[in-house]
Design a protein around this nucleic acid. Structure first.
Lengths: 213, 213
DNA sequence: GCACTTACCGACCGAACGGTCGGTAAATTA
DNA sequence: TAATTTACCGACCGTTCGGTCGGTAAGTGC
């Protein structure tokens, strides 16, 4: 998927481009995550692409556009989790919640740099505020899953569902802060750990039984 | 040069200061967290204090120094968790781990702005890299607690202890991303939720039983 | 060949950055 | 009162920022 020096896909007239926009975005997001969005200068981004700043501007229109493209990709991948079946209404709420935990973790790992950048957005510009709003809507959808499972008596009800949602998906999101693709920790192992810790915590599961207390 | 550098707390001569350094730091850290450290200009920080930029520089020496003071405070409060007894060696490892979860969450809430800033440090400067190193050492101490509990057979052993540590304390740290002091969610409620979710997950505890699987 | 399109670059711009400096006003001590 | 110390400020400095511009080289289609 992530080939560094891809052949320039030679259609079109004029001189062939060194990178596609997607390749460029991947390089750029990496620099954003290493240095931080604000701290990364357009000079840094251009140099990471092997271009001069002015040539770089020939391919992209602004720094903020790059941020927008990156967070759009992250948000698109995340919200797609809800567009999937996600076990529509047939499954028990607790199963839908478990699926959401698993799928969001998988998406986070698959789109790691983009999700990482999204989770660091502060809200200084219009693009960032829009991303924050979309992210909040996504979080709200997740919270509904938790509340449904609590209302159905399928998970513990002694903690505010909103609080449960924030903590569990906060745990999921925290993966961006340490996971590196070249790490030895395999992705399925991480996904399994997240789901198991979320369901049964440190104690582990005795069997498939969700106590309603 | 005649006197020995009038101590800041020591009521010197001259015009009385509007703020103590601690007050100033609190305001500054708030702006750092709102705008992001890199995006916050010294002009912003000064204005938040009701001072001009040049006057502001009369009280602090540099932007980086402010960051250093803030992360020092966060790291000091966090590492103090280990300097406390933390149920020294008398308690079972799982109890020490539970205490660490509870205490780190409490410290995070008590020193919220400083810990928030610490958790966002990237490593662009010497001060930031030093903070990252100290934070890593702290995380390593937490990981040891998890490993000890796993070795003692007091928590599940089907997940890599290091992974468990990252996920659980990632959950703790995620509180910085949504908690606001004026929120209606009381701090003890959050602390309890963190500990309970960590111990027993969504299923909840039937009784005092730490299954060894 | 030529026209056209595109990739590329050096030089540059105004604005904002972190930080400095010379000087003034106010409070304290003597 | 005078001396001293500190808080405070307007003006400024060198650098870097995001972004622009005019022009050139290299491919493609005719």
């Amino acid at each position: 998927m992530s080939t560094a020096a891809a052949p320039p896909a030679g259609r079109g007239r004029g001189r062939p481009a060194r990178y596609t926009r997607e390749d460029l975005l991947e390089l750029v997001v990496q620099v954003f995550n290493e240095r931080g969005y604000e701290a990364a200068s357009m000079e840094d981004l251009a140099r990471a692409s092997g271009l001069t700043k002015s040539t770089f501007y020939h391919h992209v229109s602004s720094k903020e556009e790059l941020l927008g493209m990156a967070v759009d990709r992250a948000l698109g991948a995340l919200t797609a989790v809800f567009d999937e079946e996600l076990a529509p209404a047939t499954a028990r709420p607790v199963d839908r919640l478990q699926n959401a935990l698993r799928r969001t973790t998988e998406v986070l790992l698959a789109e790691l740099p983009y999700v990482t950048l999204l989770l660091r957005v502060r809200g200084n510009t219009a693009v960032e505020r829009s991303a924050l709003a979309r992210r909040r809507a996504f979080d709200d959808q997740l919270a509904v899953l938790v509340r449904d499972a609590a209302d159905a008596g399928e998970i513990r009800d002694d903690i505010d569902p909103r609080l449960v949602s924030r903590l569990l998906f906060g745990m999921v999101n925290s993966v961006t802060q340490w996971y590196r693709p070249e790490s030895r920790t395999a992705r399925p192992q991480i996904v399994r750990a997240v789901v198991q810790l979320a369901l049964t915590g440190l104690g582990g599961a005795p069997a498939g039984q969700a106590a309603a207390h």
